[in-house]
């Protein structure tokens, strides 16, 4: 396969690859914008907590609901907490939560998809029917049901993201495996006497990487959306965490009085989700240009 090219030609191929990438990116300014937004929030997630002028949960009842000023860029909330600091610290929380949730779903989904696709038969039937059941319940409802059981907390939201997105990831992997498992290079590996595990992970998985990356990016953007919605409904990360969805929910009571408390986290969520979806759309065009959509 192409992924196992002769090393001598690798440099040439790579430089040509970069040029193609550059030209494709130039034709898609929206994904560049999306990428910059993601990069910006990645930086706030990395450095934000050190730059925050106040602690995210530091209350100052003498200074509640203050409008934006030089001292408090985004104003203060009902407890006198600095909204700017909370938004900054919240950006790390959401990246860690959604990033690790997506990675978890990808890790498990790869196993499920490979096993179902390559082993076939009962494995395929059993695993895929299980995935169908998970998909038969609307995502937000399933998330709410699971969180009602295990209780709303940071770790449990993470768990829910993993469970929710395993089916989508495993379907993507399985479809690639089904397409490739009758190809000659797989047959050759089998005749060489390679183990099933080797064939699944060393021969099949590399070929599933492009669609997998695209799927993971899409899942990441949905998970931000999901975490924010759950936080807003009070079923996600609990107070006093600076979770953006939760902050919006808490700011509703003072909406008419102090719209800035609500504006900052709402704007942050919107900007991040839009950025990630523009970026992941660009990624999809880049890695799977043949697949229509968007």
């Amino acid at each position: 396969m192409a992924s196992r090219a002769i090393p001598a030609s690798l440099g040439l191929r790579a430089s040509r690859g970069w040029r193609v990438l550059y030209h494709r990116l130039r034709r898609a300014p929206a994904s560049l914008v999306g990428g910059s937004i993601v990069l910006f929030f990645l930086l706030t997630a990395l450095f934000g907590p050190y730059l925050a002028p106040y602690g995210p949960t530091d209350q100052n009842l003498a200074a509640m609901l203050q409008p934006p000023s030089l001292g408090h860029w985004f104003g203060t909330d009902l407890f006198g907490r600095d909204v700017f600091s909370r938004v900054l610290v919240g950006s790390r929380d959401i990246f860690v939560l959604c990033g690790s949730g997506t990675l978890g779903a990808v890790a498990v989904g790869v196993f499920v998809g490979l096993a179902a696709g390559y082993q076939g038969g009962l494995w395929d039937e059993g695993l895929m029917r299980l995935m169908d059941v998970l998909l038969a319940i609307p995502a937000l409802l399933l998330a709410m049901l699971l969180l009602a059981v295990v209780g709303p907390s940071y770790g449990n939201v993470l768990l829910v993201i993993v469970v929710l997105y395993i089916p989508m990831v495993s379907r993507v992997v399985r479809s690639v495996v089904l397409e490739l498992k009758t190809k000659d290079f797989v047959e050759a590996a089998r005749l060489r006497g390679e183990s099933s595990l080797y064939i699944m992970f060393a021969e099949l998985l590399p070929n599933a990487l492009p669609p997998l990356v695209v799927e993971a990016a899409a899942r990441f953007s949905y998970s931000i959306f999901l975490v924010a919605s759950l936080g807003f409904l009070g079923l996600g990360v609990q107070p006093p965490s600076p979770d953006w969805g939760l902050m919006v929910a808490e700011a509703r009571d003072s909406y008419a009085l102090a719209p800035w408390v609500l504006a900052a986290p709402a704007a942050a969520i919107s900007l991040l989700v839009v950025g990630v979806s523009l970026f992941s759309d660009g990624l999809r065009r880049l890695l799977r240009p043949g697949v229509a959509g968007g």
Partner: peptide, 24 residues
Amino acid sequence: HVISVFSLALVGLPEFVTGLVFIG
């Protein structure tokens, strides 16, 4: 491009954000 970018952006906006903007 305008339609595509706008619909991509709108897909991402959580309902509670758009709803609260409408209320505001």
